[in-house]
Design a binder for these strands. Structure first.
Lengths: 133, 133
DNA sequence: CTACTTGCAAAGATTTTGCACCTCA
DNA sequence: TGAGGTGCAAAATCTTTGCAAGTAG
């Protein structure tokens, strides 16, 4: 079934994801991968990311109009805090949160993953509370 | 400041959102609005939705590759359960969830909104567990 | 009357795909 | 080998924008 063949390209994409704590988008990943394997195409990056997401080792952070950002799940579960002003994404340790129960879900719904995002304004952006010019 | 002028078009978009429990995307909203005001353009729908989101009366549900879906916040806070198989989106009453604390957030981060999504497989899709043909 | 809105259509951006060649297992 | 992966480039989507004309207040 989900047999995934090991290739140079995939190894590179995975390395980039593991090395980066910046929640990069496909384009940034592509650029980073190209530093080692200049011939890798953007299409391949998308296909690889897709496979990783299906495998559950990578999660996505999607914002309309902006490119999807990808996040390597390094063992520890974590969620995200997204600044609406500067767009920066911070990690939030899930351990500090009480387990979110699957209460009140529609009948028979089986949860495989929980996406929790705190939308708001980060400290830096609050500091510079100049109304947008 | 955020003075929003009342227009036929905006009223129609809001009515459609309030009437729909389907989490429609911009295109579906556009179609529904056109049943009353045939001349409304898709651009206007997007601009109106944008304003409503900024106002905080509408929240978005974003999935890469697919159109953003819009959700009227009818008083009660609620979250979502998204079926990975059929794409259907169910509401989850937030009242049943314990308050998600803002613990462990980056310094000074002020939360304005919480997006919580349960990803998984709905009962119907589990029932028909035929491997995808 | 005046500033804000709208329609239209074109531009932008992101993501997906078909096809011929290449490669891992 | 042979099933699956890759590159390239074009296509499909979704969303944003500029501009002239319309309209709410």
């Amino acid at each position: 079934m989900a047999m995934v063949r090991q290739t140079r390209q995939r190894a590179a994409v995975i390395e980039v994801l593991q090395a980066s704590r910046e929640h990069p988008d496909a384009s940034a990943i592509h650029a980073a991968v190209r530093e080692r394997l200049p011939s890798v195409s953007l299409g391949t990056v998308y296909r690889t990311l897709d496979a990783l997401v299906r495998d559950g080792v990578v999660v996505t952070l999607e914002r309309a109009g902006q490119a999807t950002r990808y996040d390597w799940r390094e063992g520890t579960a974590h969620h995200h805090a997204v600044c609406r002003t500067c767009g920066q994404i911070f990690d939030v340790d899930a351990a500090a949160l009480p387990g979110v129960p699957s209460a009140n879900l529609p009948g028979g719904f089986r949860v495989t993953d929980i996406h929790l995002e705190f939308m708001g304004v980060c400290g830096d952006c609050q500091a510079s509370t100049n109304q947008t010019p």
